[in-house]
């Protein structure tokens, strides 16, 4: 049996037998080289209560080259792309070691949720938000967890029921959005521009309203 297959099969079996870690690994189709890993958001973080799924691809040279992982569940985190789910984590790149396993890597991902590294971001906009106002960032991250990862929210299990609050999704203040909407701009455009400019918290004072308008006038 080829070494890679043996190792991956063992890793999957080990993970199934280990109930304490709360990490699941499932097959996507019949191949053991394309998997879905999942874990719960760690307690005491904005991701608490959410369940996160990770796409796992085992490369041919595994375990001598790192596994390829990305979030399937959308997540608001400085080290994860809010659009693609791509992850910035050293052990998935040059700090990889062949003794690391799928389980240990998923646990590392889980702990990445506990301790974001905004200075080495994957998603610069999210990282800026984190640096500007941590409380506002956490509120948004919690909202994303509620919407995408089935986390508990004010609306209970209000997943997919009712329209999503786009302003909260972007981590913005609805008063700010209304202020520019009243100038005649479309809501989506206002949200887009304010998000890009990081129009949040203390940073609002640094941004001239004229610049915002100028930005919105750009085609």
């Amino acid at each position: 049996m080829d070494a890679r297959l043996r190792r991956v099969n063992k890793e999957i079996a080990d993970c199934k037998n280990d109930k304490s870690s709360n990490i699941d690994i499932d097959l996507v189709d019949n191949s053991p080289f394309h998997l879905i890993g999942s874990f719960d958001g760690p307690e005491g973080t904005p991701y608490e209560g959410g369940h996160f799924e990770v796409d796992i691809v085992i490369p041919d040279s595994y375990p001598f080259q790192p596994v390829k992982m990305k979030f399937i569940t959308k997540i608001y985190h400085p080290n994860v792309s809010s659009a693609s789910g791509a992850i910035c984590l050293d052990i998935l790149k040059d700090a990889w070691s062949p003794v690391l396993t799928l389980k240990s890597t998923l646990i590392s991902l889980q702990s990445l949720l506990c301790s974001p590294e905004p200075r080495d971001p994957q998603d610069a906009e999210v990282a800026k938000h984190y640096m500007t106002s941590k409380s506002s960032f956490e509120e948004t991250a919690r909202y994303w967890t509620e919407i995408y990862a089935g986390g508990p929210g004010k609306a209970g299990k209000g997943k997919a029921s009712g329209p999503r609050d786009e302003i909260a999704m972007a981590g913005l203040d609805s008063a700010h959005v209304q202020q520019f909407q009243s100038l005649g701009f479309e809501k989506s455009k206002v949200i887009d521009v304010l998000r890009r400019m990081n129009y949040r918290g203390a940073n609002v004072a640094n941004i001239n309203d004229d610049r915002v308008v100028e930005e919105m006038l750009k085609p």
Binding site: A3, S61, F64, S97, P98, V99, L100
Partner: peptide, 28 residues
């Protein structure tokens, strides 16, 4: 580690990453 794994590891480092500074396979 077994000799086979060392071989595969070194081959992957040398051929894929063009790396001659090959550290032990253990983490850290």
């Amino acid at each position: 580690y077994c000799k086979g794994c060392w071989g595969a590891y070194i081959e992957s480092k040398v051929k894929t990453e063009a790396e001659s500074w090959i550290s032990c396979m253990a983490e850290d």
